Amino acid sequence: MTFVLTVVQNAPDVPLDRLEGWAQDATLTVVRADLGEPIPAVDELGDGLVVLGGHHHAYDDSAAPWLPAVRQLLADASRSEVPTLGICLGAQLLAVARGGRVQVAAPPGTEAGVVTIYWRVEAVSDPVAGPLVAGLTERRATPQPTLHSDAVVDLPAGAVWLASSNQYPYQAFRIGSAWGVQFHPEASAATLREWATRDGDVDTEAILAEYAEREAELVGIGEALVGGFVDHVRAVAAARVSA
């Protein structure tokens, strides 16, 4: 069945990227918040919501005046049984929206390149991460691309902690009907190059070389994880229609 996903984009160079191809049976409505397009209300979302990353921090309301509306939308969607996925900044906004805390320029420093994500036992039965994690070895580890220096340091009350890395503990979590991931399952090499070049303090060529060496694996894992979310949206939409 066809279903509708609303996508909030927070920066011109942080697009859907590979995610667009992984949701081919969805009607995608992209809201360019960074260009001043209005943030929809929860009852205007359709069947699901994705909030992408960006270069602002989660509290940067003066430079990014749309952020309060995005935080409110994330709070409303996660409480209204609307399947929601926040990626990087989107995950940080979700955490703050539900009462968690993000540290800007966190002391461990920038986490960049291909990092190992360690999935907790709670992820095995998770509706979104479960299909990926259940097929892993007992170590339950997957590589994923990332580039961030802000981080969730306190999860919201009631959140389910799903994954960590060696540098930052809260790499994935679930709260209500929403999931947040600190890493970028959707990122291609071209997108990573843009981000690393813009950052200026990371070794762009080293990041790209590591990505190229493991690209097939990274794409497969990203597709499995995002596919788990897309399947969940589809199932929730189908159940709503048949109810």
Rank of each mutant, 00 (worst) to 15 (best):
Y211C: 01
T84L: 01
A105Q: 11
T29N: 15
T6L: 01
L5N: 13
A237F: 00
H56Y: 15
P145T: 11
P185S: 06
A63I: 15
G158Q: 14
G158S: 04
A106V: 05
A58D: 07
D201N: 15
G86M: 08
A129W: 06
P12F: 03
P169D: 00
A134R: 07
H184A: 04
A106Q: 04
Y59P: 00
G100Q: 01
A97C: 05
E213Y: 07
P15C: 08
D17G: 01
G36C: 03
R101E: 08
C88A: 04
I221S: 08
A206S: 15
D203W: 15
H232V: 04
A206R: 11
A187I: 12
Y170P: 03
V128L: 11
V226P: 13
A163R: 06
P38Q: 03
V50T: 09
A58V: 10
P107G: 09
H148M: 03
Q92S: 08
E210K: 10
V124G: 07
L35Y: 09
A63P: 15
L67R: 05
A235D: 15
A91S: 15
V241E: 13
T27F: 13
G86S: 06
V128M: 06
A163W: 05
A187V: 12
Y168H: 12
D34Q: 10
A159S: 05
L52E: 06
E44T: 02
Q144W: 12
D76W: 04
H232T: 14
A97V: 12
E122A: 14
A190I: 06
E138Y: 04
D199Y: 05
P15A: 08
A91Y: 02
G220W: 02
P83T: 00
R234C: 03
V4T: 14
L45N: 08
L147W: 04
S78Y: 01
L45I: 03
V70N: 06
V51L: 13
A77G: 04
A58P: 14
G54D: 00
S242K: 13
A206T: 14
T110A: 13
R174Y: 13
R32A: 08
D47W: 08
V121R: 14
W119V: 00
E138D: 15
R140Q: 11
A129E: 07
V121I: 15
A189D: 02
G222A: 06
E223N: 12
L162F: 05
S149D: 10
H184Q: 08
Q144R: 15
A69T: 11
P143C: 14
L74E: 04
P185Q: 12
A237P: 00
T29W: 02
I207M: 13
P127I: 10
I39T: 13
P156A: 00
G109C: 14
I87R: 02
P40L: 03
T27R: 12
V102Y: 05
Q72W: 04
G227Y: 02
L93R: 07
E210M: 00
Y170M: 13
L74D: 07
Q182N: 09
S78A: 04
L93M: 11
V128R: 02
